[in-house]
Simulated assay, not measured.
Amino acid sequence: MKNPMMQQYRNFLKDTIRKHIDFSKTDQNRGIAPPPVQKPFDEDAAITDLPESCSLKGVKEINLSDAIKNRKSRRAYLKQPVLLEELSFLLWATQGIRHKIDYGHAYRTVPSAGCRHALETYLCVLNVESLEKGIYRYLPLEHRLLFEFAVDLLEVKIVEAVYGQPYPGKAAVTFIWTAIPYRMEWRYDLAAHKVIALDAGHVCQNLYLACEAVNAGTCAIAAYDQDAMDRLLKIDGTDEFTIYMAPVGKVKKPDTFEQV
């Protein structure tokens, strides 16, 4: 192989690392308490209650096979806002809590290795009914939205942070998933990092399918300026960092967008 670095990065996709880990020495097996299910927040902060997923009138019932068949990466969006109840459904579908087990564990609407769920969901809101523009964070335990902060020229800065790809700046909302690696490292040590990436894929596919129920579209983004995205979210880039993104907007149906 001409590039020796290539084999190193290919090894990340393998699971041979488990043969070299003494799992008896993980923080879990040493009796250290697990990290919390979600990041803490100031209860006096600006928080928006979300409609319960079981009472959403704007979400249509669709056949699962149709949702899978119609799933497309959509990069062109209408100027129509996403409704708050539609956003509520998309958040529930991607990171909603089915049952909290204890301080460090909860069953969600997506699978995660060892029930560790190392992701947090941030939103770059540009055109959502009842919400001002800004950066938000989803609180899955409460099914509420935490307003983090406003950003001047947010449409411009989100585009700059994805190397000029224009569609996040025209979307109603962009889902931004961050990883908190220690949630997974607590259980799996050096075997944690591959499965965090796999978990992100589970979450984003649920977003694709859920969009089909609200006449919306999305397109996953894995090419972004790491430092710029972490700065935009005001996270440290070490113990928490951006891992995946997906803009969402309303679309015409039927459509002729490129399928990928």
Rank of each mutant, 00 (worst) to 15 (best):
C219L: 12
T242A: 12
F175V: 09
P4W: 03
T242Q: 14
Y208D: 08
E43I: 07
L87S: 06
P40N: 06
N63M: 03
N3F: 11
L207Q: 07
Y136S: 01
H193P: 00
D189F: 04
D255R: 10
E160D: 13
K25S: 15
L84C: 15
Y224W: 09
M245L: 13
D230I: 05
L90G: 01
L78F: 07
R116K: 11
D42I: 12
W92R: 06
A192G: 05
L91W: 02
M1C: 11
K69W: 01
L139R: 06
H193R: 06
I21E: 02
V260W: 13
Y167Q: 06
S73N: 10
Q80E: 05
D225K: 15
K252A: 15
Q165S: 06
V214M: 12
N206E: 06
L126A: 06
S53D: 10
Y107K: 14
L91G: 03
G201E: 09
T256W: 04
F12Q: 14
H105T: 12
L154V: 00
E212G: 02
P36R: 12
M245P: 00
L90I: 12
K57N: 06
R144H: 03
I196D: 03
A197P: 09
A220E: 08
E142M: 03
K72V: 09
T178S: 03
G114W: 13
R108W: 03
G249T: 04
I97W: 03
L90W: 05
T256I: 11
Q80F: 03
R98A: 13
L190G: 00
V37C: 10
P36I: 11
L232Q: 01
R74E: 06
A179D: 07
S112V: 10
A246D: 03
G58N: 10
L56N: 10
L131I: 08
L146Y: 04
T238I: 15
Y163V: 05
K39I: 10
M184Q: 04
Q7S: 10
P111W: 01
G104S: 09
L207C: 15
G104L: 07
A76P: 09
Q8A: 10
L64H: 01
A192V: 04
N127L: 13
A172K: 01
K170Y: 12
H143C: 01
Q38M: 14
I97F: 04
I176D: 02
F89S: 05
E142P: 00
S55H: 15
D15F: 03
R231T: 04
R108H: 04
R231A: 13
W92L: 08
P140H: 03
Y167A: 11
H99F: 07
C54Q: 08
R231L: 11
D255V: 09
Y167C: 09
W92H: 05
Y182P: 00
Q165R: 06
I180S: 01
L146I: 11
L145M: 10
E129S: 15
D27C: 11
A197V: 14
I62R: 00
E85D: 08
P34E: 02
L119W: 07
A113E: 11
K14F: 08
I21M: 08
Y107C: 08
L198S: 03
Q95H: 07
A228C: 15
K100A: 15
A220R: 15
